[in-house]
Each structure stands twice: as structure tokens, then as C-alpha cells.
Design a protein around this nucleic acid. Structure first.
Lengths: 240, 240
DNA sequence: TGCCTTGAGATTGTATACAAGCATTTTCCA
DNA sequence: TGGAAAATGCTTGTATACAATCTCAAGGCA
């Protein structure tokens, strides 16, 4: 497939948004990565992106650098950018980090959570059920991010958001078939309402353990672009 | 004082290092910020930095963007970069986050720590005692970073490193006189050798609490450049 | 005298030109 | 025919030019 064509599909989403082209391009790429429309190993030529988004390479480079610092893309000198393929070691790191962070943050979450928060979470969980599989991955990340934002600690929330995004990459490489969160987030909402910390923490630990256990690190530990995803599933995104 | 002159002092450190100018410039600026030679509110004109480091604005911009994503500098459109002045709210956030992260990581540290690690930490602590006050701040950050690296979780270590750097900014704005870590890191080393987790965790909590308690949020919550630091203490850095 | 307006200077935002390095293909030789 | 070396084309790295915007100071008006 033609690169420019492919990235034009992403650009359609970006231009419809606000003025700040940086944020728009970042958002478009972030969503494409998290939704597995751009799979690990995929190359991101600056020219193609610049053309698709209607900006110069300068702007694209800035966005790519940001994504690189968040470890979603990998920059190699004179070889350009490509979607990061996490190694098995990095994958375990990310899950360990998430267990630590989400476990610690949940205590704060339970202290500060309001009815509005529950409503917002319920809405996301509802959208998840009716969304396409690709969008469900993004909404799942959004659910976790929104949940942990309740703790009101921006520093930890930001760090955690990056870990959640990287989890999506890990699932893209090592996942076996099923999507991101196999279990229902709605179950968690019920537990949240009960206002007891222990069951919530237990559920979250189990949740993360389930995801990690569903991974298969034996095969293709390396950076093999997943062309099936890249070429097959991004059609319904053409909404410009 | 002349901006270019000031930044030339930093550049001397950078050029003496390796080829990758990006990393060299980043290191030089990072150290200057953490050592309070560049204080919160100080402006960082691209031209002056480019001239000082002997590169173009393009390279400088890339480094500044990285520092901005790490929240050490603040970028405002058409107004350039300046060293970030953390708000009191952000300061509390950072300390809360550090308590959570360092507390959680210490358990892992105690599991994996080796004699070599202790030696490395002892060496840093020793350097701290003989260093100038500015260098002591940087070495203190280094001590914490090195300690937490023992846990072997790169994701959390990176996040924590950023928090430690930001702590230096917080002390620059809200600190009252005394330097970063008033207490002796050597005390911690003795506790580490004893291989008991509880005392170590208690010490660390107290350590962070002490630092936070020594801050004064009532005065100058805003971005007032600390010209005394900026103009007074950077002379001993001229080693080119 | 004090405040607002206006203009010049300086700084940043974006795009583009050119140089440097990599990848692929083509060609030549065994 | 297979392999290796060279060359061409493409992508990225860096610097610079120009436009847009802000800052600060000078001047005018109430």
C-alpha cells in the first residue's frame, strides 16, 4: 500500500480538530498507535506524514520526538522513526511498574472518587461495549487513565498514562488474538461504588495479571511488522 | 550580565565530552538546572545557547523540547523557554509521587542490592561530602537515582529521575537556605547493609518529609528569577 | 504626571535548501 | 548462475531564510 494514502486516513481525523497542529498530529498518531492501526515496526517517513497532515517536516519531527520520548516510537539516526516493538524485558517492566503505580494510586482514588467520576467511567465503559475492536483498545486505555486521574496526582498520572500506552504496544506484539482488556470494566465500577479498597485493589491486580498472563513471549520477540493489522483493519477510520 | 557569556560557561563542559551534541547539550543544561546555576524563571534564548554550544537553533530547540517534556523548562509560544517555576501544588504533587514511588521501589531495591551497589553509593556519598554546595545538589540527585536503579525497573526509574530533578527546582524556589538533602546519605548506607526493609523505608519517608517540611510556600510562589544564584555562584565551573 | 498607543527591535515559528548517510538495485566478475 | 562491489536514489540531519509575534521603550494625549 502507498504510505501517503495510509497516513492521509489519519490526517483526516487531525485536521478536523483545533488549530494547534502539533497536538492534532500527536493525537492522531497516538490513537493510531494505541488502536493498533499502526503496528510495532511500522516505519513513519517524515515526508509522508508531512504531506498527509499538510505541514512541513519540521512539525512532524517535533511530534515524532515527543512520541519517541514516550517510547511509543523509536528514532534511529539516519534511519528514521518506527513504531516501537517492546522487548519481553520491557514488557515485564511495564507490567511491574503498572502494578506498583496503579496499586498505590487506587488508595487515593477511593478517597477522592465522586459520583461524577463514576458517571464518567460508566460512560466510557458503555462506549467500550458498542465500539469496534480497535476503538475498544483506545477506550480501555482511556478508562484506566481516567480512573487514575481521580487520585489528583498529575506527576504519577502522566507516568502511568505512558505505561498504559506502551501496554497497547505490548499487546500488539505479544498478544494472542483477544483484545486489550478481556474482562469487563463495568465489574470494577460496581466495586468502586461499594467504597471498599481491598476488593478494588484485588480486582486491579487480577486484571493486570490476566492481561500479562495472556501474552506469549516465545514467538517473534523481535521487531516484525504485523502487516495483517497494518493493511487490514484501518478502513472504518475514513471519516473525513 | 551578558547571556552569551553565561551560557559559554556551560558550553565548556559540553564540548569536552563526546560527539553526540544533543546529549552533551542536554547534560550541560540539566546539570546547570539541577545545580541551581540556572534558577527558575531564567530565560533560555535559542540564539544565545546556539552560539554558546556552537550549533544551530535547530539542535538547541530539540534539547529544549526534551527538557520541556520533562518539565524542567517551560515553553510558551512566541515567548521562548525558561526554567520552570513549580507551583506549590506541583511541589506537593512531586513529593507525594516520590513517597509512593520510592517507597514501593525500596522493597525491590532491598531484594536485589549487591555489595557493588553499596560501594557505588558509598562513593557518591563520599563525593557529596567533599563537593561544593552546588555539586552536592546534583550528587544528591545522583544518589537517589542510583539507589532506585537497583530495583531494575527502567520505567519507574525514569519516572522517578524526572521527579528527583524537579525536586531540585522546587528547592530552588521554596527552599529556605539549606541545600537539598540536609541529612547524611551515609546513614542510609549503614541501614542498607543491615538488610532490613522497615528501617530503610522509615528513613526514606522521614528523609522526604524533612525536605518537604523545610520548604516555605508562603513567599514568592511566582516566577521570580533568583539573580543571586544566577550571577554569583557559577564561577568554579569554568574548566574549559 | 500618568496612562495609553504606537513603533522599532528582538525572538520565536515554520518552511526549505543542502549535505550526509543508508538501502536497494544494478552490474560485473568468477 | 551466484555473489560481491559500486552507484544511484531516497531518507534523514543540520543550518538558514523569512514571516509572525511579542517585548519594551518612546512619544502623545488627557
Amino acid at each position: 500500500m502507498n504510505d501517503t494514502r495510509q497516513f492521509h486516513l489519519l490526517a483526516g481525523l487531525a485536521t478536523g480538530r483545533d488549530a494547534r497542529s502539533d497536538d492534532a498530529i500527536y493525537q492522531a498518531l497516538w490513537e493510531a498507535i494505541v488502536e493498533h492501526r499502526l503496528s510495532p515496526g511500522a516505519r513513519l517517513p517524515e515526508d509522508a506524514l508531512a504531506g498527509a497532515f499538510g505541514v512541513s517536516r519540521t512539525t512532524v519531527r517535533r511530534v515524532l520526538q515527543r512520541l519517541a520520548l514516550e517510547q511509543l516510537v523509536t528514532l534511529r539516526t539516519h534511519r528514521g522513526a518506527q513504531i516501537t516493538s517492546p522487548t519481553p524485558g520491557e514488557a515485564r517492566d511495564v507490567f511491574r511498574a503498572r502494578r506498583v503505580l496503579e496499586g498505590a494510586l487506587l488508595a487515593e482514588v477511593m478517597r477522592y472518587i465522586t459520583l461524577e467520576d463514576v458517571q464518567a467511567l460508566k460512560q466510557i465503559a458503555e462506549q467500550e461495549r458498542h465500539a469496534s475492536r480497535e476503538q475498544a483498545i483506545r477506550l480501555s486505555a482511556r478508562f484506566h487513565t481516567r480512573l487514575m486521574a481521580i487520585a489528583g496526582n498529575a506527576s504519577l498520572s502522566d507516568a502511568l498514562s505512558q505505561l498504559i500506552s506502551r501496554t497497547s504496544l505490548i499487546i500488539a506484539v505479544y498478544g494472542r488474538g483477544q483484545a486489550g482488556c478481556p474482562c469487563e470494566h463495568q465489574t470494577l465500577i460496581e466495586l468502586l461504588k461499594a467504597e471498599a479498597l481491598a476488593p478494588v485493589q484485588h480486582w486491579m491486580h487480577q486484571h493486570l495479571a490476566d492481561i500479562e498472563a495472556s501474552l506469549d513471549f516465545t514467538a517473534s520477540g523481535d521487531a516484525l511488522p504485523d502487516f495483517e493489522h497494518l493493511f487490514g483493519h484501518h478502513r472504518e477510520q475514513n471519516v473525513s
